[in-house]
Amino acid sequence: MSFERSEISFQQCLSSAMACFRFADRIAYRPSLWIGFVLVVLRFTAAQGAELEAQRDGVIESASYVTPAFSEDQNTNPAWQAQIERLGSLYLRLRINAEGVESPGSVLRIRDRSGRLIREYTVSELLSRGPFWSAVVPGDYALVSLHTSGSLAGFHLAIGQVAYQAHGGAPLSTVGVDEKEPVANYADDPVIARIERPVARLLLVEGGIPRTCTGFLIDTGELMTNNHCVNSQATCESALAVFGYQHDRGGLLHFGEQFECTKFQESKSSIELDYAVLQLRGNPAKVWGTLSLSGTDPAPGSDIVIVQHPAGEPKKISKKGCLISALPVDGRASQTDFSHSCDTVGGSSGSPIFNASGDIIGLHHYGFGEDGDWNENRAIRMKRITEDLSQN
């Protein structure tokens, strides 16, 4: 019996208990085939994405910033403020919890080191949300201040945790020389200039850890990413999509515009196909546009393009040496994927893969490392995703 034959039998074993018993009986007295069986188990486990998770992007520390007991005649502005700093970080997020009596006309403002207003929350909004993660403050400093035009008596606010970026993505999934480039290098290319705009950096907190992925707009307020990045309403409520986080031609970094995730759309999600659709607050498509999903598979060897936020960095593009290697190949399920030679890194999960016309033909979801079981990156075939969406 050849190893290839035993591998086929193992795949049958996974889908049928009786076939599994027959398979075990056939190889019981053949040590070399047991070795092959174990290797196949390991490869299949990896292909099922058992270890897939959104790229770790930082740490969370406990904090204790608490408002005082306000009196009825409180008339100073700001009524309270706190300076929060984590030197060397590229961004901060604050875990905010408000309780007590509503104060009409009162607002909480969050500013960065330059004094730029990042987000303003009314007291009414704070009380309605419960504990939540704030907007992203670029840089390593945040000034939080509470302003009122009336009384704050009976209102309390606490910042109990601070999340900040402490490291980037793992140096994996690069094929030979790293040829990722800033998207500004292709500002004169009309197709790339159009397709890069709806791609966003996705920041979230999952398992008590700040994480980063990539996502892109497919409708007015709908963003697609990987299921292993966001797969629950709780994770969605911690997530922010940041559009336009990139360098311009002159090298100036633009922080972009951020939108909160409001709903994890379970009916538009699949573990096997590793995709999820999120509803964002507001209408980001009005400024940033949307992308088209292709229901047609490309040919192996086709030139492709990936727009991504590797390791949560400013937007980049993989175009040089970027080809489809093989199609179809197995991913989390049989023949769901294609392999490709485009450079990616941790944090590129959820990136769209385009054909020459600018249609999305794949959704990047994992790559390879030094100890990996293959030497290609993998993407879900968009044809499979569009078929799944149409059924739902």
Rank of each mutant, 00 (worst) to 15 (best):
139 G>D: 06
147 H>I: 04
146 L>R: 05
127 L>A: 10
140 D>S: 12
144 V>C: 12
133 W>R: 01
132 F>I: 01
128 S>L: 13
140 D>C: 03
134 S>W: 01
127 L>E: 11
126 L>P: 00
120 E>G: 09
134 S>P: 06
123 V>Q: 13
134 S>E: 01
117 L>N: 13
117 L>Y: 10
146 L>W: 04
140 D>Y: 05
139 G>R: 03
135 A>F: 14
150 G>Y: 13
138 P>F: 14
135 A>G: 13
131 P>Y: 07
123 V>F: 05
127 L>Y: 14
127 L>M: 13
134 S>A: 09
119 R>W: 02
151 S>H: 06
143 L>A: 11
125 E>K: 02
130 G>I: 07
147 H>S: 04
134 S>H: 00
131 P>F: 05
141 Y>Q: 15
124 S>V: 03
146 L>I: 03
137 V>P: 00
137 V>K: 01
124 S>R: 14
138 P>N: 12
130 G>R: 06
146 L>C: 05
136 V>N: 08
137 V>N: 01
122 T>A: 12
143 L>S: 10
126 L>Q: 01
140 D>Q: 04
149 S>H: 09
148 T>N: 13
126 L>S: 02
147 H>L: 09
131 P>D: 11
151 S>F: 00
136 V>A: 07
142 A>F: 00
135 A>Y: 13
148 T>K: 08
137 V>W: 00
117 L>R: 14
149 S>T: 12
138 P>I: 12
151 S>A: 08
148 T>P: 11
118 I>F: 05
124 S>D: 12
145 S>V: 08
126 L>I: 02
133 W>D: 00
125 E>A: 11
134 S>F: 03
125 E>L: 04
135 A>V: 06
127 L>N: 06
151 S>I: 01
134 S>K: 00
120 E>W: 10
133 W>G: 00
122 T>I: 04
149 S>D: 11
139 G>E: 06
140 D>T: 05
119 R>A: 04
129 R>L: 15
118 I>D: 04
122 T>C: 05
148 T>A: 07
142 A>H: 01
128 S>P: 11
143 L>H: 10
145 S>I: 04
137 V>Y: 00
125 E>H: 02
120 E>N: 10
142 A>E: 04
147 H>V: 02
122 T>E: 11
148 T>Y: 07
146 L>D: 04
139 G>L: 08
143 L>T: 07
143 L>M: 10
118 I>P: 02
144 V>M: 07
124 S>Y: 09
141 Y>W: 14
125 E>P: 00
120 E>R: 11
136 V>P: 11
122 T>P: 03
146 L>S: 03
141 Y>F: 15
146 L>A: 02
136 V>L: 07
123 V>S: 11
132 F>M: 03
138 P>A: 12
146 L>Y: 08
117 L>P: 11
132 F>S: 03
123 V>H: 05
146 L>V: 02
138 P>C: 12
121 Y>V: 02
146 L>H: 07
132 F>D: 02
141 Y>N: 12
137 V>L: 03
120 E>L: 09
126 L>G: 00
143 L>E: 12
122 T>L: 06
118 I>R: 04
143 L>Q: 10
148 T>F: 04
147 H>Q: 06
144 V>R: 04
123 V>L: 15
141 Y>M: 13
117 L>A: 13
133 W>M: 01
128 S>K: 14
